[in-house]
């Protein structure tokens, strides 16, 4: 039903806006649709300002292009229809590129990638490969891509993969010593465990790089309507530029102690 609604909204948007979209417009501002419920990527401050890693990147893109930045609040489940309905020009909301979404909208080049990473006790010497973890017990949260990853590559190689109902229980058993390591989103690992007082004896044992079957999926990018290649070209140019001139690194260092690109 949601798909139909999306398509309907898209069709309506095309009908209504066929005329204004025809003439080439010069950009004086970019309106970004944001669902600000996902710190540290996007959230609102108590005074109502948008803040977060995505927001800083968006501002950097705008200043590179010498345009004004406007952020529009929009729930994530309706964010693609709202883009199609021209409530804003682009989606800046930690959206992972998937084939289903790519059918409906275009995506910019890669903004960042939340790597999947292994955490283990300091000095354990474990790294996220099947060879290193053979015979060890690794915890994952049920239903995550990390569980699929561990089951696809590690279980057949003799790693004891244990699924948990929730990520907090994975950390609890990592602390109790039942688990030798745990596999999750790097941001989750950092904010949810390593930066908390309980995580002091533990460290990031490395990010997963080996993924020939593409279990972990794609990167995160800005969503743009399919009929606006000019905007896509501008955003791609700006992303490339902020990565090259070091602005990206500076913003990244403000939020993360590891590389997210």
């Amino acid at each position: 039903m949601k798909k139909f609604l999306g398509l309907g909204a898209a069709a309506l948007a095309v009908l209504v806006s066929a005329a204004p979209a025809a003439h080439a417009k010069t950009f004086t501002e970019i309106k970004f649709g944001v669902d600000p419920t996902y710190p540290p990527f996007e959230s609102t401050t108590p005074s109502g300002d948008f803040t977060g890693f995505d927001i800083d990147l968006g501002r950097a893109i705008c200043s590179t292009l010498h345009v004004k930045c406007v952020f529009v609040q929009q729930g994530f489940d309706g964010i693609i229809p709202a883009l199609e309905a021209r409530k804003f020009d682009a989606i800046l909301s930690s959206m992972t590129v998937t084939p289903q979404r790519a059918q409906q909208i275009d995506f910019s080049s890669e903004m960042y990638n939340e790597p999947t990473s292994l955490i283990a006790k300091k000095g354990s010497g474990l790294v996220p490969t099947a060879a290193s973890l053979k015979g060890k017990t690794v915890g994952v949260e049920s239903g995550t891509i990390q569980e699929s990853y561990a089951n696809a590559y590690w279980k057949p190689a003799g790693v004891n993969v244990v699924s948990y109902p929730g990520q907090d229980q994975v950390y609890a058993d990592l602390l109790s010593g039942r688990l030798d390591a745990s596999l999750q989103d790097s941001v989750e690992a950092d904010y949810g465990f390593l930066k908390t007082p309980k995580g002091t004896d533990y460290q990031l044992a490395g990010n997963v790089t080996y993924d020939p079957k593409d279990v972990l999926g794609s990167y995160i990018a800005i969503g743009i309507r399919k009929d606006e290649p000019a905007l896509k070209a501008k955003i791609d140019y700006a992303i490339a530029k902020i990565i090259k001139n070091g602005t990206y690194k500076k913003i990244e260092a403000k939020y993360f102690n590891f590389s997210v690109y």
């Binding site: 049920s142 239903g143 244990v162 699924s163 948990y164 109902p165």
Partner: peptide
């Protein structure tokens, strides 16, 4: 049982659901 990580019938069902 899945509270204690035992993969019983309901756990497999949840996998199928997700």
């Amino acid at each position: 049982a899945f509270t204690a990580t035992v993969p019983d019938l309901l756990k497999v069902t949840k996998d199928a659901y997700s």
